[in-house]
Design a protein around this nucleic acid. Structure first.
Lengths: 132, 132
DNA sequence: TATGACGTTTACGTCAACGTCAACTTTGTA
DNA sequence: TACAAAGTTGACGTTGACGTAAACGTCATA
């Protein structure tokens, strides 16, 4: 591999541009312990792994998770301090999250159905009201 | 139908108990114009329709929608003041929401997959670490 | 060298979505 | 009739998730 390899580090503004967020947001996530970039001098330097964490955080946001929830979920991916109790706790937490997500799936399918109905009503109203 | 018909009205505390929320929350929704119960004297009286609206609001919350978003969506179900421009605006809004929901579906399926992987790792770690 | 682009910390501001009193009325019921 | 239960309207407080502004450091380059 000699030509186009993937970037191995990112500046804060790189990530801001890529994900369309502000530096304030990223630093805020760091304040909450969701990100821990290394430093070159005083500037933050982000690895691909940091970038992945950020992507996960934003995905969580789109799902309506709190930042605290996202932090927990992200920590699930890194076994790290693996004590047996912690593993069982983790498995429980995973199941809780899964339950919530299945509830969301159900909510979404119902909402999509409602939207379909609403749209159909609009179309009908358009047909009867005007010849547009 | 002479025996058990469905309730035709609810007090504020009826709804609180049913949906496990506080009176403050319900009144807050009213302040924002999401609910418009009638009154008997000074007390609020909720119809099944009001109850449905509340259910929709809470569903929206679980999906990460703002109350303002929910208000818009709920208003979609009630054509009411149907001017052609409004209908087209409505259809656009419906499509925007549908796009967001499809994004959520994608996010959820990825997150569920991640959770499966995380759980599998936990199980493996449990097997290798202890004989529990 | 100075001007701009990019970075930093600190700290107060804001907005949504309620929580939490306080002070009061209305309605059974003991 | 008195008292508890459930209702009401303010109005200020809190939390999460950032926005915003001030004051400053570090380079590249014109």
């Amino acid at each position: 591999m000699h030509s186009s390899t993937v970037a191995v580090e990112y500046s804060i503004s790189d990530l801001c541009k890529e994900f369309d967020i502000t530096t304030r947001t990223i630093r805020h996530y760091e304040d909450l312990g969701l990100l821990n970039p290394s430093r070159r001098g005083q500037s933050r330097v982000y690895t691909p792994s940091d970038r992945t964490r950020l992507r996960l955080i934003l995905r969580g946001k789109r799902l309506g998770l709190s930042l605290e929830d996202s932090r927990q979920i992200i920590d699930m991916y890194e076994p790290g301090k693996t004590n047996i109790d912690q593993l069982n706790t983790l498995i429980d937490a995973i199941r809780v999250q899964r339950t919530k997500l299945n509830q969301q799936l159900d909510d979404i399918s119902k909402l999509l159905k409602d939207l379909n109905d609403a749209e159909a009503n609009c179309v009908i109203a358009l047909k009867t009201n005007g010849q547009n």
